[in-house]
Amino acid sequence: ARLPRSAVLKKILDSVKDLVKETNWDCNEEGMSMQALDTGRIVLVEVMLREAAFESYACEVPMTLGIDMEPFGKVLRCAGGDEKVTIKASRNDQDHIELVFENEEKERMSAFELKLMDIDGEHMAVPDAEWGAEISMPSSEFKKIVMDLAEIGSDLTIAVSKLGVTFTAQGNNCKGSMVLQPSTAVDKKSEQVAISFTEPLEMTFAAPYMKMITKAAALSSTVTLSLDEACPICVRYEMEDNAGHIKYYLAPKED
C-alpha cells in the first residue's frame, strides 16, 4: 500500500492515539480499516482508508495487522509529511510490517520495520440508525466550539431546535452557550452549517471525550454530527476524493 503523503497516516494516528493504544487493522481489497473501543468503553472509533486513498494498493489475501500505536508513532515521526509511504505486509511472515518513506526531491529513502502484535480485537456491531438530527459544519468551527466550552465545564450539551444548534457547557463558576444557525449566505459548501431534525432534542456528552474527537478536524474540512434521543452521537469526518472516513461514536451522559 503506497500513500502519496505520510501526513494522512500521521493525522489518523493523532486522531485515535488518545483513545486507543493498540488496534487491529483489517486489510482487504477495499482498503484498510479499523474499529476500536477506548478502555472506558465510552468511545468507538472507526477508520476507513479506501483503495482510492492510495497511489497504489494491492491486497491479495485479507490480513489483520495488529498495530501498537506508540512504536507506530515513533516510526511515523521519522517521515516528512509530504514523503511517500509504502506499507508492506507479507503473508509468509506476519510477524512485522515494513514502512518505507521516500522523499523524491531529496532522493532520500528510509525504511523501518514494525513488529505486529496479536491483539484480541473486539468488534462491535453498530446498527444503522434513523437519526433524529443531523448537523454538518466546518470541522474547524466545531473544534473551536468544543475546545472553548470544554474550558467552561466538563459537560457539553447539544440541543437542536428551530433556533438552530446550541452548544452549552456549565462549570462551577461560569456557563456558556453558542448557537449556530443554518448558513444561507455562504457559497463554499465546506463553510456551510446545515441542520436537519425531526423533533427538537437535547443531549449531554463528556466534554473531554468530545475534545479528543475534534482532533480529526485535520483530516477533513467538514464534520457531520448525527444525534438521536438517548443514543450515542456519531461524529463523522469524510476525507476528500472518496479516500475514506473517520467516525466516532460517543455514549451520552444520562440524567
Partner: peptide, 14 residues
C-alpha cells in the same frame, strides 16, 4: 450531575 453511559448499553459485540 449526569452519569456517563457506556457503549455496551447500545452496541453488542459482533
Amino acid at each position: 450531575k449526569a452519569g456517563q453511559m457506556r457503549l455496551d448499553s447500545f452496541f453488542k459485540p459482533q
